[in-house]
Simulated scan of single mutants.
Amino acid sequence: MTVQPGARVPTGGETDGTDEVADLFRALGRQVKVARERAGLSQKELGDRIGYAEETISSVERARRTPQPELLLAVDRLLDCGGLLASAAEDVERAKTRRRVRHPEWFRDYARLEAEAVGLCYFANQAVPGLFQTPEYARAVFTSRQPFFDEETVEERVAARMQRQELMTRWPPPTICAVVQESILRHPFGGREVQRGQLEQLLRIGLLRHVEIQVMPTASEEHAGMGGPFTLLTPKGRPQVAYLEVQHVSRLVTDPEEVRVLAAKHGSIRGQALTPRESLRLLEKMLGDL
């Protein structure tokens, strides 16, 4: 069975509250619009009076942008809303915190499984696995995305990715193995300083007892991973599943035969890559060459 984007996989978890946050922002946007129209102001006129661009007012009213507490306070004062919008400022602050650590809808099923995983195996030939990324590297990934994310969405995605990394320090931790294409590590993605920080991060992670990082050398004449990146995930007490993601299209694969084929492929990839010890030495050399 292959689960398409947006489909739900029963995990026993509770809702993450993202829909409630979106509902709050939509309600506040409508309230701002009603107050503005009641005062006979256009979006540009309101923006000029409180120091915001017309596009910002439009985006808030349509719930495309978080209604910042400062904006709500300014609208409340100018349009005499009787404290209605001002009282929502604290709710917005709490909602912003919740939203920053939430994942896009198509990724949530995988994220739920990952949070309880006892085993994770990666093959990466496009970017460093998200679980290993530094904030700077993750920010470069999301900033370079096309169609472009706005700055707020970039920061939300970075925060959510960093939160996922908490499973690296829990006890007992999951067993993690990853094979990373050498060309990824040599690519100065985000700039040399970002690259340096990411290599240092991989070295630290690679020394953890429950993590094995292997590098697939560019010079390798055999390569079982030409079909692209994938992840194997073993949830606690349940069968292994696989996760595929390319060009913003994701698939959660639960069919036992499909998962078995990918697991066998990952075994071949590990055999063709450098050993964990050789890989750490290569990472040290690359870092020294920067």
Rank of each mutant, 00 (worst) to 15 (best):
D80Y: 02
V9P: 03
V246M: 14
V141T: 10
K236H: 13
P188R: 15
K285C: 09
A88K: 14
Q43R: 14
L185A: 05
V215D: 05
R192H: 06
T18N: 06
H210Q: 10
L283E: 07
D255A: 06
E20I: 02
H248D: 08
A263V: 01
E93S: 08
K33G: 00
F107R: 00
L73F: 15
I50W: 11
G237V: 03
T218Y: 06
L252Y: 00
N125W: 01
E54R: 13
V211N: 05
Q146C: 08
R65C: 02
D150R: 01
L280I: 00
E54D: 00
S220K: 04
A178K: 15
K96N: 12
P147G: 06
Q126A: 14
L207H: 13
D76F: 11
R161T: 03
L71W: 07
T169K: 15
E61K: 01
E116I: 05
G82M: 10
E151C: 03
K236N: 11
L203Y: 05
S220R: 06
F123E: 02
G82Y: 09
Q201C: 07
A53P: 00
R170K: 11
C81M: 03
T143P: 02
S87I: 05
Q43P: 01
L282S: 00
P173T: 15
R204Q: 15
D16A: 04
G206N: 05
R26W: 15
R277D: 06
Q272K: 07
G12V: 15
E45H: 09
E61L: 02
E90I: 04
R196I: 13
L71I: 13
G6S: 05
D48A: 03
T56L: 08
Y52F: 08
E193R: 14
Q247H: 13
R251L: 15
P172F: 13
P217V: 12
V141E: 09
F149C: 07
W171Y: 07
A219D: 09
S144L: 12
Y137R: 04
V128N: 11
H266K: 09
D109P: 02
T66Y: 05
M162V: 04
E212H: 01
F142P: 14
V194W: 11
E20P: 01
A86V: 04
D48L: 08
V21E: 14
F132T: 15
E284Y: 08
Q43G: 06
L72V: 11
V141S: 07
